[in-house]
């Protein structure tokens, strides 16, 4: 099972890398999102996959339960990732609206030093 997951994680990362290297601003944000998914899944898998019960103490002491620590970590990551994506979306939307372009290269004038 883990083998399949490892391939899926590789796929998510590869797609994320590729999309982030595009000039289109929307593709860049989609790539960032894919990269986030890949990272979450990597943490989840690396912590050990188990078809156990959810980590609830009510389940009694005998039952096998999933590790709650990576879950807490991923929960935080999902929410922060959403915050970043949402902000990027608004910023990207605003910038592309102002510059009338979806090409990130069109925005580079502001980054150039004095000639």
């Amino acid at each position: 099972m883990e083998f399949g997951f490892a391939i899926a994680i590789g796929g998510l990362y590869a797609a994320g890398f590729y999309m982030m290297l595009r000039r289109n601003i929307v593709k860049f944000i989609l790539g960032l999102s894919l990269l986030g998914h890949g990272a979450n899944l990597l943490i989840f898998t690396a912590a050990g996959l188990t078809r156990a019960n959810a980590p609830l103490t009510a389940g009694g002491s005998g039952t096998v339960m999933a590790d709650p620590v990576p879950q807490a970590l991923i929960l935080t990551a999902i929410v922060i990732g959403f915050g970043v994506t949402a902000y990027m979306l608004v910023l990207g939307g605003r910038v592309s609206q102002l510059s009338q372009a979806d090409d990130v290269d069109a925005l580079r004038e502001s980054e150039r030093g004095a000639e």
Binding site: E2, F3, F5, A6, I7, I9, G10, G11, L12, Y13, A14, A15, G16, F17, Y18, L21, G38, L42, T45, A46, G48
Partner: peptide, 17 residues
């Protein structure tokens, strides 16, 4: 480049396990 990166991450996952 992206596919190479993906392969690295796949191997990384397996190693991390």
């Amino acid at each position: 480049f992206a596919v190479t990166g993906g392969v690295v991450m796949t191997v990384l996952t397996l190693v991390a396990l």
